[in-house]
Design a protein around this nucleic acid. Structure first.
Lengths: 108, 108
DNA sequence: GCACACTCTATCGGAACTCTACATAGGGTG
DNA sequence: CACCCTATGTAGAGTTCCGATAGAGTGTGC
């Protein structure tokens, strides 16, 4: 599972409340991703076993809208997503102060 | 200029000491990127005007190695890079505690 | 009854990006 | 001369992104 920025956005959105399932349009709004990016990401995450999907059990007429497909992180998905985001976080050091760094560049 | 993870790595490495120029092999070590990824990124950053490049003025025979090509962020590059990394940082919320988030999911 | 907007999910296809090889070239070493 | 090291870079296959498009159902206006 390759960690890209759109993937990270999806994982971050799903990790806000890991137990709560989200549907596509909801994730589009949360992440700002267009559907042509989001759905392929969701499918890749499913293939990787990080995500499970189920159709909402609702009568479209009664609900007044099409049924939603709900996505939720699997147990493995939650663990992996946390690791992946931690990795990303490590990548972007929270910068200290402005101008020129006096001397030693640590870590790196 | 599209912000991808390799691009972010390069920017982060260059921002450690924004005034200090870096050369390719140096950046490969700092970022862990292979040359086939790094050099295209550097060229794109130059096209975008974020980066300037100059050949090291050295005699290869005297130095005992090939001349290096030094890359440094332009003024605009420094500003843009900081913004870009801030954007990435905002994407990855510094997680608080484990399990289930009690209630409201803020921000997002 | 029909055009239109809205909510949903989803695919297509070309452009953009990544990354494993490979290419190039000079220096030093055995 | 074969081989490794420092350097920069390209080639090409594969992967990913995203604007456009599709399709289906509901509701609304006229």
């Amino acid at each position: 599972m390759r960690l890209t920025i759109p993937v990270a956005k999806v994982l971050a959105a799903l990790l806000v409340e890991p137990e709560a399932p989200r549907y596509g349009l909801d994730l589009m709004r949360l992440t700002g991703l267009p559907s042509g990016t989001l759905y392929p990401v969701l499918h890749r995450l499913q293939d990787a076993g990080w995500l499970a999907a189920d159709w909402e059990d609702v009568d479209p007429v009664a609900a007044g809208r099409p049924a939603r497909r709900y996505y939720r992180l699997t147990g493995e998905g939650i663990r992996s997503a946390r690791l992946a985001l931690a990795e990303l976080r490590a990548l972007v050091p929270s910068e200290r102060a402005g101008g020129a760094d006096p001397a030693g560049a640590p870590a790196w």
